[in-house]
Design a protein around this nucleic acid. Structure first.
Length: 589
DNA sequence: TTAGGGCTATGG
DNA sequence: CCATAGCCCTAA
């Protein structure tokens, strides 16, 4: 704070800023200040000045920053010298507007030693920070232009760099802009000293560290983390870039799908053992625990996967339990179904070798989950997951899709796009007996090309359960860049090269011989949401590969699609006979 | 800030 | 076809 205040001479004529033990200034040397009027004609008075015209009268407005189009030759700025400043003070006009000084000054050799009108000259004089300035800044010596003068502004001498704090202090706009008040600045109330000091305090506070603590400094696998890259060399990265843009626009990052690694899980368990379950923020902020851009909520979700049986009602300190037993385990079998009650043995020899840094350093809290009181192990291996997968609940009985369901699926996609839940909840489609994932999987099976070739991949758009009509309130909050979410998909089959393992747009199209490559119009320019408004759906699925009743498909050996038994009329969306639009009254509105 | 629930991608 | 993981949103 103080270190920041001291190098700001003249900003405030505040006795508090004057060190009492400092001798009065006798040799005033005005340092070159940043040009406060880089792009404005100096004939225009600052709106803060008494005789300044009204802001509305200023033509052309004022641009913050420096005008790069203004050449040196064009600058005929009058110069003032420190002597002028002193003269102004001696004439009992310490607050004389600099512009007045400028107008009356024409003899200075110094390059544009201008000070904004708000600079109090007395404070400039009394400030001791000018004592140590180099002699080249003395009034009698011209300032070097080659390295100190950068066109539109005069570079202040660099203060000694502090080793511990090399960050660039980013001044808020209000501070940057103070060098050049806006045209309407005269309308602003005067800034109180305390406000300025508080602002400076906030400026000098350290900036927050990056939220992510990279687990591995080395580059991460492309299939797990790729959102840090700026170059777009794959559809996945393009999507990530879009998501980054979305982050900048909506301030709500859409992160990439990052699978929890074993190491990360161990870090989480260490954190739980150290702080206790529920202290996700503390765990996430622990510098000793390294996660890959995980948020406290992510830790919670991950722990929820690890310990699905835990609940707050039991309120037992996980950390205490782990500390007492010096162990903490993750039972991958006890997943959501809770069908597995036994602890799965780890395939590695880590069960009996908990990390040594599991020491309890923090007191426990009463808001903790309970963990199974079984021998705990801190190591979770992929094999554990594999074993757990074998212990799944009995699967559902397969239920083959009928042709009617196929047609309803197509209609549902035409209506709701990738909103599988909306398709499921659409009573007109009669697919409520199918799960949303079933519908999605079936569509992916029927139209892999279209599913995979969407511009930004299958949307990650989310919807509320209340959006049975297809309108998702959550989607409304999503980025229009990263998540069209409502099914605006420019579907085509022009991207046959991708890794299916990669998310979304990186799906590799399944090779299919198109017995019927029928250009369908299953695309809407506005998405399903607009369908409800237009009433007519114009979706477009180009080169959709399916079998129709008119064309034989059995002759193609590698045909993979089941027969849809759709006639031409089924695809004639111009004669669309979709379910009637839902009225607002149906939503209770 | 966290807990709980929902949705979708992932992958067997 | 299905379960699960990962991510997100909202309420408390």
């Amino acid at each position: 704070m103080t270190a920041f205040l001291e190098p700001l001479p003249g900003l405030l004529d505040d006795p508090l800023l004057h060190l009492p033990d400092l001798p009065p200034r006798t040799d005033v040397r005005i340092p070159p200040l940043r040009d406060p009027f880089p792009s404005r004609a100096l004939t225009v008075l600052s709106p803060l000045e008494p005789n300044a015209p009204d802001g509305k009268q200023i033509q052309g407005g004022v641009k913050l920053g420096c005008s790069k189009n203004t050449s040196q030759a064009e600058r005929t700025n009058p110069k003032i010298t420190p002597a002028d400043v002193i003269s102004a003070r001696d004439t009992k006009k310490p607050n004389l507007a600099i512009s007045a000084l400028v107008e009356s000054s024409s003899t200075s050799q110094l390059p544009r030693l201008l000070t904004p009108s708000f600079v109090n000259l007395a404070a400039v004089e009394n400030n001791s920070s000018f004592h140590s300035w180099p002699a080249e800044y003395s009034p009698s010596k011209r300032v070097k232009l080659d390295h100190e003068y950068h066109g539109d502004y005069v570079q202040l001498p660099k203060p000694p760099q502090k080793e511990a704090n090399k960050r660039v202090l980013l001044l808020p706009t209000i501070v940057n802009g103070i060098h050049e008040p806006p045209p309407s600045a005269a309308l602003l109330p005067p800034m109180e000293l305390e406000e300025v000091k508080a602002m400076l305090d906030s400026i000098s506070e350290p900036l927050p560290l990056p939220p992510e603590k990279m687990l591995n400094p080395e580059p991460e696998p492309a299939d797990t983390v790729n959102h840090h890259r700026l170059k777009s060399s794959s559809p996945t990265e393009e999507m990530d870039m879009a998501r980054n843009i979305s982050t900048a626009v909506n301030h709500r990052p859409q992160r990439t799908w990052k699978k929890w690694s074993e190491e990360e899980t161990q870090q989480l368990l260490k954190g739980v053992a150290k702080y206790g379950a529920g202290k996700w923020k503390e765990i996430c902020a622990d510098p000793e625990l390294r996660f890959r851009d995980r948020r406290p909520m992510d830790l919670k979700d991950r722990f929820r996967i690890c310990f699905p049986n835990t609940n707050k009602e039991k309120m037992e300190d996980v950390g205490a339990s782990a500390r007492s037993e010096k162990q903490l385990s993750f039972n991958p079998g006890q997943t959501r179904n809770n069908n597995v009650t036994h602890n799965l043995p780890s395939s590695t020899d880590t069960l009996s070798s908990p990390p040594s840094d599991l020491s309890p350093n923090h007191p426990s809290s009463s808001h903790f989950y309970q963990v199974p009181s079984v021998p705990l192990n801190l190591k979770v291996t992929p094999s554990d997951f594999a074993i757990a997968a074998k212990s799944r609940a009995s699967q559902r009985v397969r239920k083959l899709w009928t042709e009617e369901e196929h047609q309803n699926l197509v209609k549902g996609f035409a209506k709701h796009g990738y909103q599988w839940t909306a398709i499921r909840n659409d009573l007109e489609l009669n697919l409520s007996h199918r799960k949303a994932t079933d519908i999605r999987d079936k569509f992916r099976s029927l139209f892999p090309q279209q599913y995979m070739d969407a511009d930004s991949g299958p949307p990650a758009g989310r919807k509320n359960t209340t959006s049975a009509g297809g309108v998702s309130s959550k989607n409304n909050s999503m980025s229009s860049i990263s998540q069209p979410a409502t099914g605006v998909r420019h579907i085509n089959s022009s991207n046959p090269t991708s890794d299916k393992r990669k998310p979304s747009t990186s799906f590799a199209p399944i090779p299919m011989a198109a017995t019927t490559t029928k250009p369908l119009h299953l695309r809407t320019d506005e998405g399903p949401r607009d369908i409800t408004t237009s009433g007519v759906e114009v979706l477009e699925i180009t080169s959709i590969t399916t079998t129709t009743t008119q064309e034989s498909s059995s002759a193609v050996p590698n045909l993979t699609l089941p027969p849809l038994a759709l006639g031409d009329n089924d695809w004639d969306w111009g004669d669309n006979k979709l379910a009637p639009l839902l009225d607002w009254e149906e939503f209770g509105l």
